[in-house]
Amino acid sequence: MAVGALWNFGQDSGYLLGESLVGFTVGAADGTIGRVERQEDRINMQHLVVDTGVWKFGGSVLIPAGIVTVIDSQEQTVSVSPSRDDIKTAPRFATDSETTDQEYLTEVGDYYHALGF
């Protein structure tokens, strides 16, 4: 699994270690993605699982912490760099076991690295 900036919240993101983002609204520049369902806080594995509601057939997506640009605790929002379409075409998230599956996380990491993140 690739480690580094993609799998850790950036210093400028506003994230405070141990802060729960569950329930926060996640958005890109081109619209809302969904709400944070779960989060993983282990260093070099930090990510969010976001319930996308109906825009992605009622599924969830796994978002690496490194693509989070701004966390606004007051407004309970998380902003991300990629567009909705970029996130929509990311490797599908199907089961909870994928949040720790090295092969799946590598696939997700490779996808976002190919986009320049």
Rank of each mutant, 00 (worst) to 15 (best):
V49S: 09
M1G: 13
L21W: 01
W55F: 12
F93K: 03
K88E: 12
V49W: 10
I33T: 05
P91L: 07
Q46A: 07
R38I: 03
W7L: 00
H47E: 01
N8V: 01
F57W: 13
K56M: 09
V49R: 10
T32D: 07
S83N: 11
R84V: 15
P64S: 07
V26Y: 07
Q76T: 06
I63A: 08
D51Q: 10
L62E: 13
I67R: 02
E37Q: 10
T25M: 07
P64G: 08
A114I: 02
F117P: 00
S13P: 01
T99A: 03
F117H: 14
D101G: 02
Y15S: 01
D85T: 08
A2G: 04
S73N: 14
I87G: 02
G116K: 01
Q76H: 07
M1E: 12
T106D: 13
H113S: 14
V54Q: 13
Q102W: 02
G18A: 00
G18Y: 00
R35W: 11
L48T: 09
A65N: 06
D72P: 06
T89K: 13
G18K: 01
D96R: 11
T69N: 09
G4Q: 03
V49H: 10
A29Q: 05
S81N: 06
R35F: 13
L48H: 09
V70H: 12
V80G: 00
Q76W: 01
S13Y: 01
A2V: 07
G10D: 10
V78F: 09
S73H: 14
V68C: 11
T52N: 05
V26G: 07
K88C: 07
F24Y: 15
V68M: 10
Q74P: 05
D41E: 12
V70Q: 11
I67M: 06
Q74H: 15
A65I: 04
T25F: 00
R38H: 14
D41K: 05
F9L: 00
S81F: 05
T106W: 08
Y15F: 10
D110F: 04
G27E: 04
W55K: 06
T100F: 04
F9H: 00
A90N: 03
A2F: 05
I43N: 01
H113K: 14
G34E: 01
T89R: 15
V54H: 12
D96P: 09
V61N: 07
S60K: 15
T95M: 08
Y112R: 02
